[in-house]
């Protein structure tokens, strides 16, 4: 049987999107009352939940304390039911550890940690359903949760993936496209300044194409940021209506 045709001659992708189109993004903030901040996001069929605690005093060993800024602690996990075949181990495996580290790096670049010396911010992210672009869903969810928690950031951190098929960059890959073996680039962007918080790429790519691929990923990130901004504003309206201000 022939391999999947990721991009048809007419320019359609497997799920009917064109090359530069994103999946449908839906998000809600403040889903949990107990945590300081929380958010839920759906990017197509990828669903993620993020919870933020803090800033609070450093727990556990005091040696981790930084005297001039806050420590960011991230934990990433996937629900056992998030993939087509049940996962054995929801967190703690290599992939999750790596992902946690990436998240940590991303948010250290975005959160104004120097406002909270000697304290700690915990970000917990869980993938409820996985369909490609797990990292970007996590970053986007965590951004909303951090905003919900009221922790100041330089800018939204928006993340999106991009792939490269038949000389054409594809934005926001779904699982089938990601597993096709082609290049996949994950980018976390601070959209207003255009600063890159994290860039990660799997598989090989000719350097001539890198530019176009980055361009596509950045455009996609800016698209995501618009949606997130909308969500935040809406949430603010609802909340302010509740508090009667």
């Amino acid at each position: 049987m022939a391999g999947l045709e990721l991009l048809s001659d007419q320019g359609y992708r497997l799920d009917g999107r064109k090359a530069a189109e994103l999946r449908k993004v839906q998000a809600r903030m403040g889903v949990f009352a107990q945590a300081d901040g929380s958010a839920y996001i759906e990017q197509g069929n990828t669903k993620a939940l993020a919870v933020v605690y803090g800033p609070h005093e450093v727990r556990g060993s005091r040696s981790k304390t930084l005297h001039d800024r806050a420590v960011i602690n991230c934990q990433y996990s996937m629900a056992t039911f998030s993939t087509a075949e049940r996962k054995r181990r929801p967190h703690g495996d290599r992939k999750s550890t790596e992902m946690s580290l990436h998240l940590k790096q991303t948010f250290e670049a975005a959160v104004l940690t120097n406002l909270y010396p000697r304290s700690q911010i915990d970000i917990y992210v869980k993938i409820l359903q996985s369909d490609g672009g797990n990292y970007s869903a996590c970053v986007n969810a965590a951004t909303l949760a951090v905003v919900d928690a009221g922790i100041p950031m330089r800018d939204y951190v928006c993340a999106c993936t991009a792939g490269f098929v038949d000389e054409t960059p594809l934005a926001d890959l779904c699982h089938a496209e990601e597993s096709g073996g082609g290049t996949s680039l994950a980018l976390a962007l601070l959209p207003r300044g255009g600063h890159i918080a994290l860039l990660q790429m799997d598989a090989r790519l000719h350097q001539d194409h890198l530019e176009t691929l980055m361009e596509a990923a950045m455009t996609a990130c800016k698209g995501v940021s618009k949606v997130l901004d909308e969500v935040v504003r809406q949430h603010l309206q609802v909340v302010s209506a509740l508090t009667g201000e």
Binding site: D15, K24, N45
Partner: peptide, 28 residues
């Protein structure tokens, strides 16, 4: 512009039957 809808596919990979959900976007 785009409306989402989901389609269900039954797909077997490595011999095992797996239920895969794929998105399917429609346009006017």
């Amino acid at each position: 512009m785009i409306k989402t809808e989901k389609v269900l596919h039954l797909k077997s990979s490595r011999g095992r039957k797996v239920r895969v959900v794929r998105e399917h976007y429609l346009r006017e």
